[in-house]
């Protein structure tokens, strides 16, 4: 494969590192009581996911993942945390009941994971007959402006409406306070 004999194992180690980063970041994001750490977990998970995208032969998407999630989404959430309140409230009610709820939810999400992973592992996946494996950025751009041009325009309208809606909602709240 290459001149350096250990390079497949370095590649496999990198892949496992990205998988571990993704999963550990997600677990941190949902389990820590402090919301700021939860945002850090989301950012870590996004970086790991960007690595997985790189292994799926799409470096452009890997860069966009870091740019949008770590750069925009996480920073926006941090702004919201600074404007609102920083911490998860202490659980109300009896302590045993909270733990029972967490355990029940753990079982439920375990069942969801088992079912969907089983579908993915044992499913009869068929590859489409005529398959284009060219995933370069040039082709993404051409497809976006030809086959998917309607979806492209619609999503730009969605983003515009989202910005206007966000401004309108935030302004109404300010008026009511005065």
């Amino acid at each position: 494969m290459s001149a350096f004999p250990g390079s497949p194992y370095i590649l496999a180690g990198l892949f496992l590192l990205f998988v571990a980063t993704t999963v550990a970041g997600a677990v941190l994001a949902v389990s820590t009581p402090r919301i700021i750490r939860s945002v850090i977990g989301l950012a870590t998970s996004s970086i790991g996911l960007a690595g997985l995208y790189y292994f799926l032969n799409s470096p452009f998407l890997a860069l966009m993942e870091i740019l949008i999630y770590v750069g925009a989404v996480c920073v926006t959430i941090i702004f919201a945390i600074m404007l609102a309140e920083p911490d998860e409230p202490a659980p109300e009610g009896r302590r045993g009941r909270t733990w029972a709820g967490a355990a029940a939810m753990l079982v439920v999400s375990g069942i969801i994971f088992w079912g969907i992973a089983r579908l993915g592992l044992t499913g009869n996946w068929t590859t489409v007959a005529i398959r284009n494996t060219d995933g370069r950025v040039e082709r993404i751009g051409v497809e976006l402006l030809t086959t998917y041009s309607l979806a492209f325009e619609v999503i730009s309208i969605v983003l515009l409406v989202a910005i206007l809606g966000a401004l309108a909602i935030a302004r109404v709240g300010r008026h009511r306070e005065e």
């Binding site: 997600a26 939810m105 439920v108 969801i112 992973a117």
Partner: peptide, 17 residues
């Protein structure tokens, strides 16, 4: 696919808890 299923399960767990 397994990693994606795990992320979905973690997300649903967090959404409820």
């Amino acid at each position: 696919l397994t990693v994606a299923a795990l992320l979905l399960a973690i997300g649903i767990f967090g959404l409820v808890r």
